[in-house]
């Protein structure tokens, strides 16, 4: 069974004042088909974990290991990680002017699969996946993320998750900024991907509301760069009621 294994991961971010440690020893094992929710207050390092796993150059791994089926993920370049089966749905998807969504999707799919998708079926597949996510067909010809609303960007991220069929998907606050309708559409997309591909999901969120649509198998509470508590779905319910106060003292409450 494919496994993404994170062991004692320490990560620093480059700042003007020099490297600043963010992650302080993260241990996490995700098997395919499993959904792990990572919850935590702002600044706890959740998004740093996502970016570090994808290989963003701003983040430096200072110690620890990440393996995908025993393969050393940290030794891979950003694109190699994606081709190995890692997918990051970004919190702030980037605009790429002049590159159409259709061209981008085909180029990425070709890179990930190592061969161009069959022309006829690919077109249909993209169309159907866009319809499922309530993305207008006209978006194919638009530049990637350019002029997209927040909700459109997030749906475009999940569209890619459905089409690229990764082995492990990291969803970095995909729910933030979404209204209820968009949240439902996006969640349905994630659930479809889980059903169709047995993808392992690392769901990073500040709020519990997305967990009503996407059922986690495990919940991890992230505080100060490491996992402070772990449990099943019931942990999310407790966080819903109590907030993060018990982990961080005063001042930080959950506003779900």
């Amino acid at each position: 069974m494919p496994t993404l294994e994170i062991r004692d991961l320490h990560v620093s971010v480059d700042t003007k004042e020099g490297p600043k440690p963010i992650l302080r020893g993260v241990d996490l094992t995700i098997n395919s088909g499993e959904t792990h929710a990572i919850m935590g207050p702002n600044g706890s390092g959740k998004s740093t974990l996502a970016s570090a796993l994808a290989g963003h150059p701003k983040y430096q791994v200072t110690s620890g290991t990440v393996t995908l089926d025993g393969e050393d993920v940290l030794a891979m370049t950003v694109d190699e990680r994606a081709r190995a089966g890692l997918f990051l749905a970004m919190q702030y998807p980037v605009e790429v002017p002049g590159v159409s969504v259709a061209n981008f999707l085909r180029t990425a799919k070709t890179a990930i699969d190592g061969e161009a998708p069959a022309l006829r079926t690919w077109g249909k597949e993209v169309k159907a996946a866009m319809a499922d996510l309530r993305i207008d067909a006209a978006f194919s010809e638009r530049s990637v993320n350019e002029g997209f609303s927040g909700g459109e960007k997030k749906r475009h991220e999940i569209l890619q998750m459905e089409l690229f069929k990764p082995r492990f998907a990291i969803l970095d606050e995909t729910d933030s900024g979404l209204d209820v309708d968009a949240l439902r559409v996006v969640s349905e997309g994630v659930n479809r991907a889980k059903q169709n591909t047995d993808v392992g999901v690392l769901l990073i969120t500040h709020y519990t509301r997305i967990l009503r649509y996407i059922k986690p198998d495990f919940v991890h509470v992230f505080v100060d760069g490491r996992i402070a508590e772990e449990g099943g779905p019931e942990l999310a319910e407790r966080l819903e009621n109590e907030g993060y106060d018990r982990y961080v003292g005063t001042g930080t409450t959950m506003s779900a």
Binding site: V78, D79, R81, A82, V94, G98, V99, A111, I112
Partner: peptide
């Protein structure tokens, strides 16, 4: 950041740069 976004979709750096420049002029 554009480069990171494209590479995070499996596109090798050389191809990603090419896409961005082509896009700039498209």
């Amino acid at each position: 950041e554009q480069l990171f976004y494209l590479m995070a979709r499996g596109i090798p750096e050389v191809d990603a740069r090419r896409l961005v420049v082509r896009g700039f002029f498209a």
